[in-house]
Amino acid sequence: MESLFSAGLRIQRRVISALMIRELATRFGRENIGFLWVVAEPLLFASLVGVIWRLTKGAEEHGVGIISFVASGYIPLVLFRSAVSRSVGLFSANGSLMYHRQIKIADFVLVRFLLEMISHMAAYIIIGLVLFAFGEFPVPADIGLFLGGWGIYAFFTLSLCFVLAPLSEMSSVLEKLVPVTVYLMIPFSGTFTMLSWLTPSIQEAMVWSPPAMAMEMMRGGLYGDDVVVFYSVGIPLAMSMVLLLLGLAMCRRVRRTLVVE
């Protein structure tokens, strides 16, 4: 006799994979070139910004190649931006699936995020290889640190999605605020800056920005000794964990009042 837990796990796996396939079919399938854009947009952005910076500032910024620096910052930011904006109104949009009890609303958040993460990781690899072929991307000096940074970045993004998805059902103001907030956080995300370029007081404050910490780790892993990095692993992890727990509790609460057509 199968235990309740393993039966639950089996159903969960089934649901997650079915939702992933469904999402793939609606997003990337059939007529559009969805996935291609995930790769093309950061590639285009990194190249254009790289070209402009190169013309105005020269080939290197603080000793690292500009194009790879922009690309390595921008791809995680695109992941963050699209995961966050896609989690707004997620439950209402998927309301028809609430007819099937084995699907829990947390599954929607997880599936959307996983898909974003996988496609952006694939985009990262493709962009990295293309730029490497042109001599514009380094071989990661410390792949472990790089992946650790990517992992923390992704975990923070997921945790935030878990909070935003239920919050957007509680208040429609959020829908308008999210894009602005994402833009405003760019200076604090480490996307286009490294901590070592900043003043000590700002460096200290940046410890409280999980994306900035994760980005430092990724840059450290990418450029190795060419850059000086300052980061904490514990603070961003703890902050993400708190967000995640808060988000799960909010999902539970929102589910009770969710009106399904």
């Binding site: 089934r14 994979s17 079915a18 469904r22 079919a25 028809s96 007819y99």
Partner: peptide, 22 residues
């Protein structure tokens, strides 16, 4: 209404339901 994804075909919906109900 309800229980279906409007943008997917009848077959796609059937495939989805087959998957989630095993």
């Amino acid at each position: 209404g309800g229980g279906f994804q409007g943008s997917l075909t009848g077959y796609d919906n059937a495939r989805f339901i087959a998957r989630i109900y095993g």
